[in-house]
Design a protein around this nucleic acid. Structure first.
Lengths: 146, 146
DNA sequence: ATGACTGCAAATGTTTTGCAGGTTT
DNA sequence: AAACCTGCAAAACATTTGCAGTCAT
């Protein structure tokens, strides 16, 4: 498996773009941060290491990271785009307890296959999906049940 | 099954709010429009029937409709919130074309069963879910491919 | 020289909010 | 009177874009 930095260099080269100190720094910080991060949060982290970097550069870099397949946008539905590293991470969906907000990351190969099939049935070429399962976790069931 | 207008009246009453001509008109238009609709689109339709109604009233009404459970927000991921009627409708998930924003409502019994199984495997009692499939529809594939 | 990259500020587009006046109870 | 509702315009918010200057090839 190629490393993200390598993949980004491939992408940069193929597109006749250039690697710059700003891009290297943003990439580095983005990859080290796990979980989801918004452009604003990433910008704040970047500023700590180099206050001269502007917001626009961060936004532009996030676009490049998405195009190159290194980052992936995760929609939370609150009007703020968040990104997660898409390299070296398993795809996952979310199982959320509606009582205590606990969240478990889950994957089910069979569901993924059926999603593909379902999309194809409607003439779509599936490029991604989001699935959120809501329920009540074991602990909260106990608490409620008695 | 109660009608949406009735449910909205219950909600209005419980919250000590008032039914007004503006709200009635917006509700009426919203319920008649099937599929998803953005605030802007709804506003345009409303203006045709009563040009004196302002955007803010439409936005505020959509918030009330969501709170009352009559409308449901559907995330397309393009920065525009869309809503659909959530009353008297079969459960369904969404298959969305990322090129032209076309949306198909889908249901797959097998997937639903597997979701149940997946939740149970993690000790959760499943109470609901949201699933969005993103892809490229037949037409857009043609357009792109050649 | 050409083309890419940058920070800044201005622009964009959607949604929310403050306000002053109007309406219902 | 008190509490709600309205349209308007301004504000807020995240994100994008135009621009003039800088840098690499």
């Amino acid at each position: 498996m190629k490393k993200a930095a390598e993949l980004f260099n491939d992408f940069i080269t193929k597109k006749n773009l250039r690697m710059t100190p700003q891009r290297a720094l943003i990439l580095d910080i983005f990859l080290k941060k796990q979980g989801h991060i918004s452009a604003e949060e990433l910008y704040d982290l970047v500023k700590k290491r180099d206050p001269s970097i502007g917001q626009a550069t961060v936004y532009r870099m996030l676009k490049l990271l998405s195009e190159s397949g290194i980052a992936r946008a995760v929609e939370f539905g609150d009007g703020v785009a968040r990104y997660e590293s898409h390299i070296g991470r398993e795809h996952h969906d979310h199982l959320i307890c509606t009582e205590c907000n606990k969240e478990v990351e889950v994957v089910d190969e069979d569901i993924e296959k059926l999603q593909e099939r379902l999309a194809r049935k409607h003439g779509f070429k599936l490029t991604g999906h989001k699935m959120y399962l809501y329920g009540i976790c074991r602990q909260c069931q106990r608490k409620k049940g008695g």
